[in-house]
Design a protein around this nucleic acid. Structure first.
Lengths: 233, 233
DNA sequence: TAGGCACAAAGTGCATGCACTTGCCTTGCC
DNA sequence: GGCAAGGCAAGTGCATGCACTTTGTGCCTA
């Protein structure tokens, strides 16, 4: 085993496990409440239980998984109340980022924000949900970076990843694509004007709307946390 | 060894290690840059390296320690730039908490906030830095809780603990005690009025001032990250 | 039939051991 | 005397093993 590993490995084994498991949680492949069995995960990724345990520990430290002593780990289940608090926080964090972005983005950042935003209009016309989803993520990341505050960036990205499992399919709601673009447009305009207050408010409103759109799915998820033992390799 | 442990243990061994190490970091007993040797820590706490490793992993996940693959762990060193970003985030987070507190605190929460605040005036007159420090922490925690948003609470507490090593001795600056109380007073008054905007602004300003006060010490710390191997038991 | 008791199986928690990496120090060479 | 190569000690990374906890299941009893 020792020899084979080095071919696959990029960081340490533990890091890989953290990324692998986090990715499956964030993308919704592993669902809230689902059991995370150490031995199965170890077998699945062809490592021993030790790095799996460490990975689960780290994931629980950042809140993506929940660990009950002697009773194993599950993908973090989130109460409706805590979920709401995360959405609200997200709105506030994005508001801060937008505000700071309006004040601090460099000319280059502003330009590419605007360009990309205009380019994405096409995706809306084409109703290209998948592609727009990708662009949407990029757009928000630009805001986070534009705030020029690394810690806010960290907090925001962290919160977003914890929310990710609950905001899948937000663009499936009819007309959501176009509305999203228009809301982005308000934010971009405010930032280009350097109007911090307006940018903040627009960003907060935007997220609030997304929250409500997502809440539907979140509720559905919470009701039926099907426990599917991941079997395939 | 196996038998003896159970006497001491409260949570799992790993949890204890996390708390123990985090505590030493937050209180400044372990200083930024200081080396965290797995074997020494294991010996010191009379456990094997495994739980120590897991604890270090978790602490690195939340940013309190830094891990270099194959090269051990150190107490997280923070660049001046990142430190500044944390202080700025803190100001924004506290502003959010204060705003929400003004809107959402229950009558009981408002009452006890005000009472405790008034009571602390005595500590200022007595120049009881230590006691005031404790009260100060309580005061801010009340704000975080008063926001009635668990996730914001988590983010804020987390950021505060990461800042803790750098804000020691903030009340040693002459006159800081009285000024701090007055700033709190502005916040309390705004909250009692239910004036969210004013409360937010007052909280932000308050933290900004603390940041500047702390920055002095932070800078001093960063210059001389003495590596002291913790020896006592 | 319901309630509990004991035992078994599964799975977690930690200790230990070994391979590997890193940094330092020595040795030999120019 | 300076410098590179090689070897050594210290320390990390992961695998494995064993003890302990939890949970499920069958059997016994009232």
């Amino acid at each position: 085993m020792s020899g084979k590993r080095s071919l696959i490995r990029s960081g340490t084994t533990v890091d890989q496990m953290v990324r692998a498991i986090a990715d499956r949680i964030v993308t919704g492949y592993l669902r809230p409440g689902e059991k995370l069995d150490e031995s199965s995960l170890a077998a699945r990724f062809e490592v021993s239980r030790t790095p799996v345990r460490e990975a689960l520990g780290q994931l629980s430290a950042i809140g993506l998984v929940e660990r009950r002593p002697n009773r194993g780990a599950i993908v973090a289940m989130v109460t409706q109340e805590y979920l709401a608090s995360m959405f609200e926080s997200m709105a506030e964090l994005e508001a801060i980022c937008a505000r700071f972005s309006a004040e601090r983005m460099t000319a280059g950042e502003r330009r590419s924000l605007e360009l990309e935003h205009q380019a994405s209009a096409r995706l809306v016309q084409l109703r290209a949900e998948e592609d727009y989803e990708y662009f949407n993520t990029e757009f928000h990341t630009r805001l986070y970076r534009g705030a020029h505050n690394t810690h806010i960036y960290d907090l925001t990205v962290m919160t977003r990843s914890r929310l990710a499992p609950f905001r899948r399919a937000q663009f499936m709601l009819p007309g959501r694509l176009a509305k999203s673009w228009q809301e982005h447009d308000v934010i971009v305009t405010a930032i280009m004007r350097g109007d911090a207050a307006a940018a903040g408010k627009a960003a907060r409103d935007h997220v609030s709307i997304v929250s409500e759109a997502s809440a539907v799915f979140a509720a559905a998820d919470a009701e039926a946390p099907k426990v599917i033992r991941s079997a395939r390799r």
